[in-house]
C-alpha cells in the first residue's frame, strides 16, 4: 500500500558560512550576501520519505514550502532527488510570521492538499533553530507528533514505527497514521540529485516564474503538467487573516543587536617553544592545571 507523504521544507540563508559582508553597517543581516539553501534537516526528512517510497509501491511525495518566489528552488531541488510534486505558498500576507503563524499557514495549505498519510519535516531550520514549526503544525491539524526521529522503521496497516534519538539514548515509538514526524541531522543524509530527474524537471516552474522567463523560454507545461510547480497565494488557501503574518504572531522582536565583543586584555603568544613552555609553567604554578 502506497503512502501519501507531505514533506515540509524551508529555504534558509546558509548561516553556517557567514562571511564578513553578512552584516550591514546598521547591524541588520544582509540576506543577499548569504547563499539560500535547502534547510539541511529538511533534506534528512526528504531522505526518509524517499526510503518509504522505495519500500512501499505507489507512495507519492509532495513538497510544501512557504517563502518568497525564489523558494521554488527548494521544490525543484526536491523533484531532482525524487519527490513527485510540490507547492509553494507565497504571499506578502505571510511576511513577518513567527513559528506559530507559519505553522498556521502551513496547516491551512495541508488541509487544502487534503489527502495525506504522513507529514515529515526537518527538526529545525538553521536560521532560527527553534524546532517549533513541526509540533505546532501537528497541533493545528490535531495529529500526533514524533520529534527527534532518526529513522522510520516501517509504516504498515495504518501505523508507523519510528526510532527517536534523545539526549541520552534511543527510543522506538509507534504512532497511528496520519502523524507529523520531525527528523534529526543524525538521520541518513539525503541522496544526491538523480541525473534522469534533473533532465525531467529542469524546466519545472511556478506560474510567476514562467511569466518572467526570457523570450526564448518555451513553456511546455501544457503537455507536461509535471513541469508546473503549484503556487498558492493567501487567496488559494482558506485562512483567517488574524492568524497570519505579524498579526498572527504572538512573539515580536523588540530589539536586535549586532554582536560586539568586549575585548579583554589578552596576552599574545607565538607558537615558539619558549612561549609555549612559559605558558605551561605559568598554568602549573598558579594551579590552573596539574
Amino acid at each position: 500500500m502506497g503512502l501519501k507523504i507531505i514533506v515540509l521544507a524551508k529555504q534558509v540563508p546558509d548561516t553556517r558560512n557567514v562571511g564578513k559582508d553578512a552584516m550591514k553597517a546598521d547591524g541588520t543581516v544582509n540576506r543577499a550576501a548569504l547563499p539560500a539553501i535547502f534547510n539541511p534537516e529538511d533534506l534528512n526528512a526528504l531522505e526518509q520519505a524517499l526510503r518509504l517510497k522505495e519500500k512501499y509501491k505507489g507512495t507519492t511525495i509532495t513538497l510544501l514550502t512557504m517563502g518568497p518566489g525564489r523558494a521554488a528552488d527548494i521544490i525543484r531541488e526536491g523533484l531532482f532527488r525524487g519527490a513527485d510534486d510540490g507547492y509553494l505558498l507565497t504571499d506578502r500576507a505571510f511576511a513577518g510570521s513567527d513559528t506559530l503563524a507559519t505553522s498556521y499557514a502551513l496547516a491551512c495549505a495541508i488541509r487544502k492538499i487534503k489527502s495525506f498519510d504522513l507529514i515529515i519535516a526537518g527538526r529545525q531550520a538553521i536560521d532560527g533553530d527553534t524546532a517549533q514549526v513541526g509540533p505546532q503544525v501537528a497541533e493545528k491539524l490535531n495529529l500526533p507528533q514524533v520529534t527527534y526521529a532518526e529513522e522510520v522503521l516501517k509504516a504498515e496497516k495504518g501505523k508507523i514505527q519510528i526510532k527517536r534519538r534523545l539526549e541520552r539514548g534511543v527510543e522506538t515509538v509507534e504512532s497511528p497514521l496520519p502523524c507529523v514526524i520531525t527528523v534529526n541531522s543524525s538521520a541518513a543524509p539525503c541522496r544526491p540529485r538523480a541525473a534522469k530527474l534533473l533532465m525531467k524537471y529542469k524546466h519545472a516552474r511556478t506560474m510567476s516564474e514562467r511569466q518572467t522567463q526570457a523570450e526564448d523560454y518555451i513553456d511546455m507545461s501544457a503537455d507536461r503538467p509535471y513541469l508546473n510547480i503549484q503556487e498558492w497565494s493567501v487567496n488559494d488557501v482558506e485562512t483567517d487573516s488574524k492568524w497570519l503574518g505579524l498579526s498572527g504572531s504572538p512573539t515580536k522582536v523588540k530589539t536586535i543587536e549586532n554582536v560586539v565583543f568586549q575585548a579583554k586584555e589578552s596576552k599574545v603568544l607565538t607558537s615558539s617553544d619558549k612561549d609555549i613552555e612559559e605558558l605551561i609553567k605559568e598554568l602549573i604554578v598558579n594551579h590552573t592545571i596539574g
Binding site: 553556517r16 532560527g128 512573539t251 536586535i256 543587536e257
Partner: peptide, 13 residues
Amino acid sequence: PAFGGNIVATIIN
C-alpha cells in the same frame, strides 16, 4: 542569539 549566532535578539510577547 539568532541567525547562526550572528545577532542577539530580544523577543517579547
